[in-house]
Design a protein around this nucleic acid. Sequence first.
DNA 1: TTGTAATGCGTGTTATAACACCTATATTCA
DNA 2: TGAATATAGGTGTTATAACACGCATTACAA
Lengths: 155, 155
Amino acid sequence: MPSSLRDEIKQTRPFKSLEEETLLSIDRTAALLLHRLADTFKPHDITITQYNVLRILRGAGAEGLCRNEIRDRLIAQVPDVTRLLDRLEQAGLLARERASDDRRVVTTRITTLGLALLQRLDAPVAGAQQRALGHMNATQLRTLIDLLALARTPA
Amino acid sequence: MPSSLRDEIKQTRPFKSLEEETLLSIDRTAALLLHRLADTFKPHDITITQYNVLRILRGAGAEGLCRNEIRDRLIAQVPDVTRLLDRLEQAGLLARERASDDRRVVTTRITTLGLALLQRLDAPVAGAQQRALGHMNATQLRTLIDLLALARTPA
DNA sequence: TTGTAATGCGTGTTATAACACCTATATTCA
DNA sequence: TGAATATAGGTGTTATAACACGCATTACAA
């Protein structure tokens, strides 16, 4: 049986509204699951956000992406993408090059080293995802995905 | 119609698994909604985590709570509760006192100033919660809460 | 009754998040 | 064409998150 949020946070009084309980549930679930997932990345000296950047760049292929495009594709909003990319570049996982046609643009591409790291991570990440949510069936997962999409859609 | 996560993050290829899509959905939804909610707290120079601490202490009443009890009741895991409380104490929103019976324990209580701040925040917070999720009906919210609870329950 | 472990809390340090501001290049349009 | 605006990206700074470690007090147990 799913545990009750009120029990988890030892809250004695009922929630003020269904909306409050939902927001707290989303917050807690994300924090809990992401925290567990982070352990998968830790041995590789990489954070979830950094992993997401590499995943995005792998998807973009040889053409690469500019900074703002990466920012827009990230799961969570990151206010300092420049220095996030700085760190990954310093680790040799991606390369940046100023575009010749529009000199404002800096094209970012994943390196061979970055691709190799992603490849090493693919199986452990898939395993962690299964451990996290493997106990839910397809209908439950699909319903959860749809309701979360609805929650993100403003009135 | 709820927006699709793949569209939102401009991902061309399908997700590798339903579990992956669910985890990314939870991450993105939490980041988005919490970011919006944070704007409600910003004018009062307080973060969501700090607000949660005050809310917990208001619930605890005059008896107060020790540090570890506060840590356990927080929605998200905070690794440095001591300095989180330091800041709230410095702002005069809570008071700490070393217990006389067990001198290891420090009892924390919300102050009149902290209670007043919470009272000022109650209406704006409720309003923000309604703006965030008011477009979902009770059945949808309840289903979402239950599925998130299930997601948090390890296999 | 005294060594040993457990508990509760604090501190030091580094990396990152968050916010505002700044520079360079390109575009637009009077 | 040249001033104004938009766009792409970077920098400076502060606060907080994250992690490891240390100290004081209490409980336990040989």
